[in-house]
């Protein structure tokens, strides 16, 4: 085995998976609060454009990422108002968000097509990046790769250890009870939707800032849907989102290298795998109905304040 090749493949897998980690975590935080947002794809592409435009204007990476996050939070707040305030159907509203985001990015982004974003610096982790094979593969990345993993830790800590996280989960499990206990179901969901939207948009911005420093309309190419699948696959747990994202990323990279490995089946069969695996995972989770593995109890249900 050529270790140099192995190392660069692992490196590429991390790069391919990072948008999915962010977007998956963004979907996860919303779903734990009981909100099913089918607009992740739209949030990602708007984030991709916002980050790209900021980088082209000469701002540093941090500003580009913040711009993407802000754009995502703003767009997600449209969804939040419709679903939480106007009791709009969440499934259709999410879909509208995806359509709107894709269209808006195509419209506003046409002026940026063909330009390239500046290269993002690599943050090699001291000492560790000198290690053979894994040094390049794991410890010599752009800051966003590390941030994505850090975010999973933060979200895990938030959901599992903090009081606010407990309340968020309560709202997701049973919004009627949470309301009866005096928690603001709509306020908490609003925060979950906007922060989740920001995360999804950061995931999108990774595409234009690092992965392919270009903007093309429709470039998210269904990653938003994969992110939604990922959350189910991960049975609503942050670390499993990372594991799932890397698995999905591996499939993508494996596809590109399949010829080199002497695999001659059409690439499309491999591309189907993530979707089929998700359906299987969904069936297994739903069928067993084990405690802690199942979907949040109020997921996708409309909450109305009764007086």
């Amino acid at each position: 085995m050529d270790y140099g090749l192995l190392s660069s493949i692992i490196h590429a897998i991390l790069v391919a998976s990072t948008p999915l980690v962010f977007a998956g975590l963004g979907a996860l935080i919303q779903e734990r609060a009981g909100v099913l947002n089918l607009g992740i794809e739209g949030l990602m592409i708007v984030g991709a454009l916002a980050g790209f435009a900021t980088a082209l204007a000469g701002y540093p990476l941090l500003m580009s990422v913040l711009a993407a996050a802000l754009a995502g939070a703003l767009l997600a707040s449209i969804f939040a108002v419709l679903v939480l305030r106007l009791y709009a159907n969440p499934v259709a509203t999410g879909l509208a968000l995806t359509l709107f985001g894709l269209g808006l990015a195509a419209l506003a982004g046409s002026q940026y097509v063909g330009q390239a974003a500046p290269q993002v610096d690599t943050w090699a982790i001291p000492v560790l990046h000198h290690l053979p094979v894994i040094g390049h593969a794991l410890f010599s990345h752009d800051p966003l790769v590390y941030l994505s993993i850090l975010m999973a830790f933060v979200i895990w800590w938030f959901l599992k250890k903090s009081r606010a996280g407990l309340i968020l989960r309560a709202v997701g499990e049973n919004h009627t009870s949470a309301h009866a206990l005096g928690f603001s179901v709509r306020g908490i969901r609003f925060l979950a939707i906007t922060s989740g939207g920001a995360l999804a948009a950061i995931g999108g911005s990774y595409l234009t800032l690092v992965q392919t420093p270009l903007f093309v309309e429709g470039m998210t190419a269904g990653r938003g849907w994969i992110a939604l699948a990922l959350v189910v696959f991960a049975s609503w747990r942050p670390f499993r989102v990372i594991a799932g994202a890397y698995l999905f990323g591996s499939v993508t990279i494996l596809q590109l290298h399949s010829q080199a490995f002497g695999i001659s089946i059409p690439a499309q069969w491999l591309s189907m795998l993530p979707y089929i695996v998700t359906i299987v995972a969904l069936v297994l989770i739903s069928a067993r109905g084990e405690k802690g593995l199942a979907a949040p109890g109020s997921l996708g249900k409309i909450f109305r304040v009764s007086r």
């Binding site: 879909l95 509208a96 968000l97 359509l99 709107f100 985001g101 894709l102 808006l104 195509a106 419209l107």
Partner: peptide, 13 residues
């Protein structure tokens, strides 16, 4: 042409 989706999205919103 993809901007037509802006219109469709807005309409649904």
């Amino acid at each position: 042409a993809a901007s037509t989706q802006v219109f469709q999205g807005l309409l649904l919103f």
